[in-house]
Design a protein around this nucleic acid. Structure first.
Lengths: 212, 212
DNA sequence: CGAGAGACTGTATATAAATTCAGCCCCATG
DNA sequence: CATGGGGCTGAATTTATATACAGTCTCTCG
């Protein structure tokens, strides 16, 4: 993504700043006006170039449907390595797809990953109340440290038959029990000899920024 | 701004969330669709009401020209000591002393204050399990927005007789009830005519970085 | 009991904005 | 020396959006 031209970088930077300052992304006309183009199509061309180079996202047909793709996330997409600053936020994860894929991304938060122990690699938005009694509520963001193994008692992000879930981990021999922390929910029992279980990571913290 | 109706609050909250999640404010049609209106004009009416009540800003003629007005400056400028970057972490607060006094400081975390709505001014380490059922556990950090008033149902940081506590706020006339979210604890009832009650701020989020 | 706020439905219209098309100039590259 | 990316102008077209207008129904308030 560093292969942007000087002008493209200027356009991208303008979109970033405008969005931060105004609270909404600019239109083609606003970009053209700010950069001194007499034609809105100059802005359109730049946008296409930026999309092609993976620096910008466009939601077609929507007015102001621009979104700057933060380099931290771009890096995360590459091979799951967190970027320079902050953490990517991941939402509902579709079956079969990698957890940090673009479709699941809800945003990017400026949080020091080192604030958690061990360090967090991403934030996963938790759906449902199955971990309520562990103080993880619907909509909370679980700070996740990527790791392929877990120890008994840890809270894990696990993938069972292509479904991603957050539960407490307990293993005895070849049987893993994924325990909810809410009596209304049933444990998930996985026999490793017959089913596949992938540990995506372990929960290292919680961030709640929705109304209490 | 507290004189919003339930529905208006819902609309405002949707606009806030949509903007945070999508990176751009919603259109009237998107609001209508999300709230279940069959007519876009229902959204328009709500927007007008919110503007009239000072909760929302509209830039006329612009598509998606909505901006939720945060009255963050109210308490922030009063004597808020928040630094340039991140948030101070405050622990046990001694009787009589200001909450942000140096003695109570446990540290400073690199977290974007704007990540919470309204913005957080500091993090308060919560002691005890009295708010367990609200997903606030012993040792959690409560993100606090400094504000001297609270609305019913909000989680507040309150000072009663020089003791600082975190509870859910409910006022009826001259009587304020500070409700725990755990049946093992008793509500604190304050008669404003006889006791002093100071609202230090409202809870706007939770951060947990101790073992889960 | 009339008036106005609140919460909508439904239709219409002007305009904001995205997007396509047709060009022009410069420059590097195989 | 053609080819393609980069960087534009200018105009046209379609679609997305804001906004006005005309109603309905239910409250509350003085």
């Amino acid at each position: 993504m560093s292969n942007l031209t000087e002008r493209q970088r200027e356009v991208l930077e303008f979109i970033r700043r405008f969005t931060a300052a105004e609270g909404l992304p600019p239109t083609r006309a606003e970009i053209a006006s700010a950069l001194g183009f007499r034609s809105v199509n100059a802005a359109e061309d730049h946008i296409r170039a930026l999309v092609r180079k993976g620096a910008l996202e466009v939601r077609p047909g929507l007015s102001r449907g621009l979104r700057v793709i933060e380099q931290a996330l771009a890096g995360a997409l590459a091979d799951g390595v967190e970027g320079e600053e902050g953490l990517p936020v991941v939402g509902r994860v579709a079956a079969g797809s990698p957890i940090l894929a673009l479709e699941h991304r809800l945003g990017h938060y400026r949080i020091d990953p080192e604030l958690f122990r061990p360090r967090a690699h991403y934030l996963l938005q938790v759906r449902g109340a199955s971990m309520r009694d562990a103080g993880i509520l619907d909509g909370d963001l679980l700070a996740v440290h990527r790791r392929r193994e877990a120890e008994n008692g840890q809270i894990v992000v696990a993938r069972v038959d292509d479904e991603v879930t957050v539960k407490r981990f307990r293993q005895r021999g070849n049987v893993v029990r994924l325990l909810p922390e809410n009596p209304d929910f049933e444990p998930i029992v996985v026999d490793l000899r017959r089913q596949s279980l992938v540990i995506e990571g372990i929960g290292v913290g919680v961030l709640r920024n929705h109304p209490l």
